[in-house]
Amino acid sequence: MSTAQPVLRIRDLHKKYDRLEVLHGISLDVPRGRVLVVIGPSGCGKSTLLRCINGLEAIESGDIELNGESISSGKTRWNLVRQKIGMVFQSYDLFPHMTVMGNILLGPLKAQGRDRREVTREAEQLLDRVGLLDRKDSYPRQLSGGQKQRVAIVRALCMNPEIMLFDEVTASLDPEMVREVLDVMLGLAERGMTMLIVTHEMAFARAVADKIIFMDQGVIVESAPPNVFFENPVSDRARRFLNIFQFDGVKKEEQPHVES
């Protein structure tokens, strides 16, 4: 596996907003069929990392390769590269003037020039898989937040991407809708989709990830398999971060007071 070419390879990536450097030399590989989950405190640069990968942000230096080809040379034809990189955002970003089906078909038909019947069939299969086939003629405003994100995932999948990027896709959802979206992503992982996921859902991260990337202040602090990372984080920063998600019990009778 280690000898095979990774789908995505990033080397020494630097990114600045004005004078503020948000990524200081990020390097990572995403092998085919693997799921990497990026976690870290707010402002650590994890969303920026995803946005750099599909060219929504220009980078200062470093190299990004997709299937062995550099996509950071400056001559990159991003519209072609992005067809191979599916991305789903935190905000519901469906096109409000198009139906569910219209949203899904736009990229394959206009960007890829594929056959309408073939794409429609594929779109229907994907919608069926996420349980939304009956909503294919609905407009986004008629859908719940969770449904919208599932459609957004299908829209990205229907481009047949090499890799999927998820940028905190459940962060704006009501809690009862988080699960339905995460289940779709788990399903993708089971089918062998290569994914790079930014999330704050720790239990989900642990369940879905082949590898956890912990970022803080623009660098990768730690990178390890999930059980190692969550049980024995090496760095102080990772430990402090994980502590945020732990709660000490406060019921006095049941929990003897140990520390002072």
Binding site: L56, F95, L106, G107, A111
Partner: peptide
């Protein structure tokens, strides 16, 4: 919203396709 344009980019549309199919109709 600005991310309408980004959504268009993310599915591989060219800028003129984004204007034509996403921005101008809305």
């Amino acid at each position: 919203p600005a991310h309408q344009r980004e959504s268009g980019r993310a599915i591989g549309l060219t800028e003129s396709q984004i204007n034509r199919y996403v921005i101008i109709p809305q």
